[in-house]
Every structure is written in structure tokens, then in C-alpha cells.
Design a protein around this nucleic acid. Sequence first.
DNA 1: AATCCACAGGAAGCCCGGGAAC
DNA 2: GTTCCCGGGCTTCCTGTGGATT
Length: 425
Amino acid sequence: MASEGLFDMILQTKPIFKDREYLRHSYTPEKLPHRDEQIQQIARILAAPLRGETPSNVLIYGKPGTGKTATVNYVAKELEKVSEKAPIKVKVVYLNCERVNTHYRILAKLSDTFLEGLRNHRGKEFLTKMNLPTHVPRTGWPTDEVYKSFLKSLDDEKQLAVIILDEIDKLVRKSGDDVLYSLTRMNSELKNAKVSIIGISNDLHFMEYLDSRVRSSLGEEETVFPPYNAHQLRDILHQRSEISFIDGVLTDPVIQLCAAHAAREHGDARRALDLLRVSGEIAESMGAENVNVEHVRKAHERIELDQTVEVIKTLPVQSKLLLYSISMLAERTPRAVISGDVYGLYEDFCRQVGLDILTRRRVSDLISELDVLGVIDAKIINKGRYGRTKEIKLNVHPLQVQAAVQQDYLFSDLRAENFRFPTRA
DNA sequence: AATCCACAGGAAGCCCGGGAAC
DNA sequence: GTTCCCGGGCTTCCTGTGGATT
């Protein structure tokens, strides 16, 4: 291999990207195409405090990648800016409930935000005088202590706290609606300040799990973000590609194909941008001068695979072993994979690698988790006399699962030795 | 019509680690 | 150090399910 040619080749390759950062999800563009209606609607609701009224709480629905978060943050930032001249100050707090997902953590985060503001504004001595801490520890306090400290720090002046709870459905699913209950009731306890909540959810049905009082308070206003269609996705891609790709390397069919792919997957703009970026990266690595539809096809495959492999690799050990058992059964048995068989093989593997064997009950939950992740599809079926079970369908090729699991050194040498695979239906 | 299989999945509570306050 | 609190993983115990079988 001629090593001096290595860098020559890379240096000779014409660049494809101007700046690929503009294609990442973290980048929020100045203009949000096809979201004017939603921007107007949210702005109208949030503008109330500037006229001295309390704004309503808002719930925002929409599939992933429909611009919910970007739109809300955009409007909130504008509001914060405008409020500097208004009689009432607006402070926006953004919380992603995927990470901040318990009663305690939400209150702690909110409390910290306002304590910090207070410290900068009034000084540290003021906090001591008011009997307030400088910050709330990550754990250790009783929850109502945290609540009180939030209440006090917020109520210090006439202001509006706009609390954005992104992925609020995950919060409710994990910790129930206690937090939402206390947050929605706060306004009656506050003398100076006001609270307004913006909930963002992917799930249209999560409201069903809420207490009816919380439901009516939270859902005073609702805004739905429809999925982008292929045409709108194309506009978004055009907008971003102009600043991120070198002129002329992208052709219209390429953008159209990316848009079409993403439109098929519930109009997810993030997906469309990923696809465009990875297509560019593939074209670049192949030394192509421009991006073509073949690169898009390859990118599509790669994204799919990378995602599932990543999901599997980051699974806890027990889930990995369980998934491995499922993949073995899927590969070797003619009949459908059912939970009873999975448990048997799982036990066998546990003994082999010296892992504790979890109970059926726990395994049942783990299977449901795998289902939620989308790696498998689990369907409850009744087989009459032969009981009730879950029929499991693997959404990934068994060999891909096995390869991903075996990257964990614990499982590199797993064999199904003692297990008798079921043979007939 | 009654029975019964082989689980699903809810409820409660245990145990442990992490962390703060006393 | 001890005591209190939180959260997550887990177990134990339990009730529910619906169609094939008796």
C-alpha cells in the first residue's frame, strides 16, 4: 500500500460541506419554515402577561421532528426579549423531562434557576436573610422543602415564570402527575409572581393518565404541530443545504429523495436533515464530487442500522441477554417466539455467564421495555387452554442483534448448549 | 357451562447507593 | 458517624384474561 498516496487522496478530494453544523438538530435556524401559524398562536397566548393578564397554560402536540421544541424556544426567547421593556419580567425555564423526570428533580432545577437569579440580582446575603439556600442538592431534601424554596425564590418579585416541559409525556409515564398538580396550583399561592406551563408532548393520549383538575388546567390551550409533508421538508432542506453544502454539490433529486424518505417516516425533519448530512458524508468518504441518490440510499441504510446497534449496545446486561435469547429463538425455531420459551433460554444463558436470574415478573417488564424501544414487537395472545402469552417479533435481523450483543465482552462466547429449542407449532 | 392454562401486569414493599443535615 | 430522604431495580403476592378443552 502506497502510504504517501493516502493523504494525497484525502487532500485532493473536493470538499462537499461548507459547514455541516447547520445540519445538526442542535442548530435552531433564524426562520422556521411552515410554522408561522403555530408561532402566531403560541405568541398570542404568551403575550397575555405583557398586558397584565396571566397567560394560559399550553399543551403542544406533534410527532418527533415537527419543530415543536424549536418553535417554542423561539417564541419564548422573543418574549423574554420584549418583556425587558414591559412592566413585568418574564423568565423562561426549559426542562427536558427525558432527563429531568421526577417531582424532585423538576422542582430542584426550577428552584436552582430562580435562586441563581436572586443571587445575581440581590446578592448572597439576601438569600441568607431570607433563609434560602444557595442551591438545592441533587438529592437528599424532602420534596416539599424544595417546593418551598422554589416558591419563595420565585415570589420575590413581580415576574412570570414560563416553564417549558419538553417530552412531558415521559414525565407523566414515569412519575405520575404530582409535579404538574403542584405547578398548576402554584398561582394561587404566589403573591407577586405567576407561573405558566408549556407542555410539549409526542403522545396525543398522555392526558388520559392525568388527574382531571390537572388536565383542565394544563390543557387550557392546545396547539397541534402537524407532520411536515414532503414538499415542506424539501423547503427545510433547501434552506439548510444552502448554508451547509458547497454550491452545486447537491442536486434537486437528492433533496427530494431525502424529503420523501423522511415524509414517509411521519414527516420528521430531524430525520431528513440526518439523511442529508450522512449522504454528504458518504459522498465525501467515497471521494465523489457531488451527492447522488445512491449516496442517499446508502445513508438511509446506515442510519437505520446505526440506530438499532446503538440502542442494543447501550442496553443493560439483563436486557441484552434477554434480547439475545429472543434472537436465538427467532433464528432457530419454526414457531412464533413466546415469552415462556424466552424465559427458559434466558435462564440458561444467565447460568452460563454467572448472572443473577431475574424473576418472570421482572422479565415481563424488560420485554415491555424492549417493545417500547422498538427493537421487538410484543403482542399478547390468548391460546385458550394453552394459556396467555406474549408473542414476540424481532424487528432487527437476529444476526445483527447477536453481533451487537456479543460486542459486550461478557457475552462474547455465548452458546445455547443445554436448551432444547421448541420444534413444533 | 365450567374449568383451566400460562402467562400479563397491578400493588406494595424491600434493598441499596447517593447525598444532605445533624 | 447517624439519620433522613430519594430513586431505581427488583421481588412477592396477587388478580385478571379468554378461548380450547372437558
